[in-house]
Design a binder for these strands. Structure first.
Lengths: 353, 353
DNA sequence: GTGAAAGCGCTAACAC
DNA sequence: GTGTTAGCGCTTTCAC
């Protein structure tokens, strides 16, 4: 039993450590650490030698241990409500590209429009000591919690307003007014509004109501549908919410002549319901989306919508977060507003009757 | 200068530690640790008291430190080639749901069809000591690397074959044969095949060629297009590759009467090119996709395609990974094959000429 | 039941 | 340039 070299217990998952490398290279721990960090306080020859040994031994540095020391994980979290919506796919890409460029990795957290899950994810991210999170939420935030978590990690929001927290957004309200105005100018008076949750799209909803009021069009409650209300069941991603709400709308004694969807994804569901009813867009019913996700021009007829700079929103959010992580937060909270653009395609026309 | 309590330097980011809690509660570190781990080796009263103090102090446990000790991060990595493709959004969801259910968080890594980036991500995940990764790749893998990384983390593949590595897949080849057969039965002989990269969809491509050969249809090179070849530039996610390849195809002196796309996402790009050319689907040209992503039935006409159990693929991959992490890997590598289903919708018809 | 002490793999003063 | 040493925040024997 030759165990005279058992100076150290091997870890459970036997994995090469800096210690093994040091021993093999005949140098100290610090030297290996220096090589790892590409410090120029090591002799060229030593560096080369150690590097070679690292390769030979298949040494894989342990970021967890490094992070413990520097109190950083070089990771960020991204919390989104619904990955099934292509809007978020594009946004994720913007965030991830920036993170990657800065040497950060990204945790993806999909809350599925579940407020409890969202909260749990936020805490999880804090416990994992990510350097920052980006939150896109449809819910009212627990300010106490946010403030507490903000001590261990930077927080940025996208399309979400949290007191004292930096964020990026677009002017939803104004954009929505433009969309509704287009419908009104075409002659529509029976304009429905469908969304996941009214509180989650307050500004867009406000744009809708304001524009109607401005034109003395009565706001009818039956034209305003929330999926979260419609279905007391939890949000089930296997079905598109727009489909369900539109079906209801079309059953009304006096159905709307136009539908404004909270976003393109929901609008695409509306297409399905309308197709099923053998109605035609835009002849029988006009429809407008919001976001301009890539499928909106694939829809037939192509969807009239408000174009948001989705990738840029993710990118800008990511950059803001990086800035806050790297330079420390700004004393005065910033809200970066990105421009939108109304795009008229084929899904809107004057009402037929 | 009252510094008689400076027994310990505060960490840079001043953050409450187990030490502070212990001091405030008047117990030892181990006791606090036990409370944290919900061990039943602590007195009920002590437990309660410590918990209360933790709350009051807003203590947030440091997972990094815990992970260092247990040699686990309770995290997994998911490496995908293209988040813009809704196929992956659905797959991600399957993986994440399983991870979440098991108390794991998920790093999302989007390689953007860049083999170098993919490799870098794999190494990054290993350095972060994730407990496992799921890889969906279009590239030939560096077996040496895989073997090395497999020592620190479990590896699972989806729709990707790596020697000795567990995975989940569908029978691409047979499914593709069924699709091509449908086209041939309709009378098509000029059938094109468009994909991102032939090596990345070997099985699907094989199904295509085999079925043509079986029917004595000559395989024409100009009908086989790879995006990665078509464009020597790097993959640019701002454009849909199917659009570009289809445009080229339609310019041919003898254009195909049917196009088989490697997946629905690429097929949707083909729709755009065909619409632009003022041609009609399926009258002028038939088209088939692969995957059955949710937008495929939104396309107009609705896309004929091979339905893959996308969410289940992610879920199964996640479960397999969890099993391997929790129970240790199986001695003999497993490949779970999930069923597909050919769905005939509106985008295919007999050729007009 | 509870505490003391020795690590987990690495970094960062501080010596020499 | 290189080594020694003391931690980072937590877990885990091993005593008592």
């Amino acid at each position: 039993m030759n165990n005279k070299y058992s100076e150290r217990k091997k870890s459970k998952i036997s994995s090469i450590t800096i210690y093994d490398v040091a021993k093999a290279a005949g140098v100290s721990l610090s030297t290996v650490s220096r090589v790892l960090n590409d410090s120029d306080l090591v002799g060229k020859n030593t560096k080369f030698k150690v590097q070679k040994i690292m390769d030979e031994m298949n040494y894989i540095p342990n970021q967890i241990a490094r992070g413990l020391m520097n109190n950083t994980s070089k990771a960020i979290g991204l919390i989104i409500p619904d990955i099934a919506n292509p809007f978020f796919a594009e946004l994720i890409q913007g965030v991830e590209d920036v993170a990657n460029k800065n040497g950060f990795s990204m945790f993806l957290c999909n809350s599925n429009y579940n407020s409890e899950k969202e909260k749990a994810y936020m805490i999880d991210m804090a416990e994992r000591r990510v350097d920052g999170v980006i939150i896109i939420s449809a819910f009212k935030q627990d300010l106490e919690l946010i403030k507490r978590l903000n001590k261990t990690m930077k927080i940025i929001t996208i399309q979400t307003r949290i007191e004292e927290i930096d964020g990026v957004k677009t002017d939803d309200q104004a954009s929505m007014k433009e969309a509704i105005n287009h419908l009104i100018l075409l002659g529509h008076k029976k304009i429905a509004f469908i969304c996941f949750d009214l509180r989650g799209c307050k500004e867009r909803y406000k744009g809708y109501t304001e524009m109607l009021q401005l034109n003395n069009i009565q706001i009818k409650e039956e034209y305003i549908r929330e999926y979260s209300k419609e279905c007391n069941a939890l949000y089930n991603n296997k079905e598109n919410m727009g489909y369900i709400m539109t079906k209801e709308l079309l059953e009304l004694p006096e159905p709307p002549t136009a539908i404004q969807a909270m976003n393109d994804y929901i609008a695409s569901g509306a297409y399905l319901a309308i197709k099923e009813k053998k109605l035609s867009i835009p002849k029988d019913i006009s429809i407008i989306g919001f976001d301009n996700i890539s499928i909106s021009k694939l829809l037939n007829p192509a969807l009239t919508t408000v174009s948001q700079p989705i990738y840029a929103m993710g990118e800008t959010g990511g950059e803001l977060l990086m800035k806050n992580i790297l330079d420390g937060s700004n004393p005065v909270p910033r809200m970066i507003v990105l421009p939108t653009k109304f795009i008229i395609r084929e899904s809107t026309a004057p009402p037929s009757n």
